[in-house]
Design a protein around this nucleic acid. Structure first.
Lengths: 132, 132
DNA sequence: CATGGGTAGTTAGGTAGCCTAACTAAACGA
DNA sequence: TCGTTTAGTTAGGCTACCTAACTACCCATG
């Protein structure tokens, strides 16, 4: 399971870089903003299970690339509100499509039942990580 | 699926580092040597889907740590034969146990059926990556 | 048997993503 | 108002990845 995760990510990285789109860590953070909505840097760091320091650099890079915007928090002068830009949404969508295409082609040699097993496993793992 | 892999590895890394044992990339390479047998650096790089340059550095570090040995190839003076040391096997075993314990505890809240789904999915993904 | 093209591995230099420690600035509560 | 807590940044360090350029060796072919 662990080994499968390592190898899968290495493979996905190859394709991502071929297309010069967006790295896995950025795609993952951006998707939180897109699908779960705008939030503070620290909240995003928690969602992604990294430290605020790490997220601070990721956010700075993504902001430079125009993937997200920083807005002042309505009432808290220390905090920022991070939100995806239209460009960010677009690029995330591209990335998702590319990744999806890769995963589909990888799973092309497997049966429908096996595909369903993999999908369910991904959900189980995410749920377990959230609760654990 | 992609996102589950990212989050799983981040979680595993936390535990690995707590124990100051062996990093995921090293564990993965070492396990090839332990379970599939001694081989050349380039062959190991291919098995791990990284470039020889990357593997060269990994191997140098693991050799310094006494996890593996370098032997001359019987007939080819350019090549080396990499094999795990007893210490390497031992540490790999520890790492596997720790990781196993983590994964077990993560999956503790899931049913037996779900655990089986995850196990099968890992096998399917590895098989798909090998053939694709 | 010399020579030149391929192969095994290393080195140099660069990037991303992760960390901890130490900091600034704002908020809050006693 | 003043000390503590919280949000985010910066500095410095590590691992793991890459490409490009190198050395050393292998092997065929003239």
């Amino acid at each position: 399971m662990h080994s499968a995760a390592i190898h899968l990510l290495r493979r996905v990285r190859q394709v991502d870089e071929e297309a010069m789109r967006i790295s896995p860590a950025r795609a993952s953070a951006l998707s939180v903003l897109v699908f779960a909505g705008a939030r503070s840097l620290t909240a995003l760091a928690e969602a992604e299970r990294v430290t605020p320091a790490t997220m601070s650099k990721l956010v700075a890079a993504m902001e430079r690339e125009g993937l997200l915007r920083r807005r002042p928090h309505a009432t808290d002068g220390r905090a920022v509100r991070l939100e995806a830009t239209p460009k960010g949404r677009r690029i995330l969508q591209h990335g998702r499509e590319r990744r999806l295409a890769l995963l589909e082609s990888l799973l092309a040699g497997t049966s429908a039942r096996e595909t369903a097993v993999v999908r369910e496993a991904a959900e189980i793992v995410e749920r377990a990580l959230r609760s654990g």
